[in-house]
Design a protein around this nucleic acid. Structure first.
Lengths: 208, 208
DNA sequence: AATTTTTATTGAACGATGTTCAAGGTTCCT
DNA sequence: AGGAACCTTGAACATCGTTCAATAAAAATT
């Protein structure tokens, strides 16, 4: 009972790693079941014993990517910065750096679209929601008056804005932006956003 | 000499319109040459007399989408707003509304990846760069001290930040955000960003 | 108007791809 | 050892984008 399962488990791990490497090297569109099978040493059809379909495989790789991203953001979060504002700047830059260093894997997180009828599993949704939590603590120090709900929305907006700068900044369709310039620009705009948010927090009583 | 070319031109227009409709209805992944051929009444292979390949077709549809987006942003830009800041807010919301109303076509602009060896034509690059120009004038009124280069970078950053909020906000993978809430949140963050940028403009002499 | 030359259109065929499945092999329990 | 349960295989299928020899149409020439 163990021998077969062991092999299966090992193969499954190999498969996920091979898929990760293949996406990193050739992009999401370069992921091919036959190449994967050859790489891990099994038949093409055997891939479907290890995984339901490629969608699931991409989701599994995505989960690994999200966890590595999570670690990178955690490091930036807990590094001692002079202020909550600078903590947020560091998190934003950590996000940018991670995307640049893991470009294809990071892109795969957003490029991948499942067939409309299939629903994505809970663990995958959870993985994604964890990302926002990194900016909660420093942001809470800066915006203490907001309600829990307003706060969550603001956190997501801030995250999304940085994501947009990274996404378009690393896009090669438009003029490619040199990475140091992008980092600097992200730092600038994050500082400005926070300044503005804090100033508005003071001005408003009720929020809106 | 005319008869054949006329038919060709008409078919080509039909093809592009059919492709546009198909992307709008079924997404970029739902675009199929055989379905297109059936829809415009020609053989599958004939598509390649009208267009080099699917990449070019997607680019042509993208060009149309960009021009419509351009018009929507122009309207927001020239609507009389109480201040340059509010003009920028309106442009941002116009971007959000366009994306929501043209979801699949708008997504196709960013989802599409050409084969790495093919270079995308000049007219396509130009189409894209035109977008940033909409926020130049109101932003210039708010940030008069910036150099031309700093200014261009800031404009792109602001645009990218809004793009990110729209992109993640309209994504269905995460919790779907209701559109009115998204619009409100975009308005909030744009105002905050501008407040912050203006405040920083005053504080700094040289820039950075 | 007839014939030749040039051009356009067709749809069958090719190569790749994700996915399935009957056939054959392996492993495990008794 | 023997049989039941399970696993793996690779050929086969359906669906793509794309190509191309054959066919039809148009244009040019006589």
């Amino acid at each position: 009972m163990t021998k077969a399962l062991e092999r299966r488990e090992k193969l499954r791990v190999d498969l996920i790693q091979a898929a990760e490497g293949m996406i990193a090297e050739r992009g999401l569109a370069g992921l091919k079941t036959r190449d994967l099978a050859r790489e891990i040493g099994c038949a093409n059809g055997a891939v479907y014993n290890l995984v339901a379909d490629v969608d699931e495989l991409v989701l599994l790789v995505g989960s690994r990517t999200l966890h590595r991203l999570d670690k990178a953001l955690s490091a930036a979060e807990s590094a001692d910065a002079p202020s909550p504002q600078e903590t947020l700047v560091r998190i934003a830059i950590a996000y940018c750096d991670f995307a640049a260093e893991n470009l294809e894997l990071w892109r795969a997180l957003f490029e991948h679209r499942m067939a409309a009828d299939k629903i994505l599993p809970d663990w995958s949704v959870n993985d994604q929601l964890q990302l926002f939590r990194h900016i909660y603590q420093p942001l809470a120090q800066l915006l203490p008056k907001r309600s829990q709900e307003q706060f969550g929305i603001t956190a997501r907006s801030l995250f999304s804005a940085v994501h947009g700068m990274v996404a378009l900044g690393l896009e090669q369709k438009l003029v490619a932006v040199p990475l140091p310039a992008l980092r600097k620009e992200i730092a600038n705009l994050v500082r400005a956003m926070i300044d503005g948010l804090v100033a508005r927090e003071v001005k408003m009583i009720g929020g809106g």
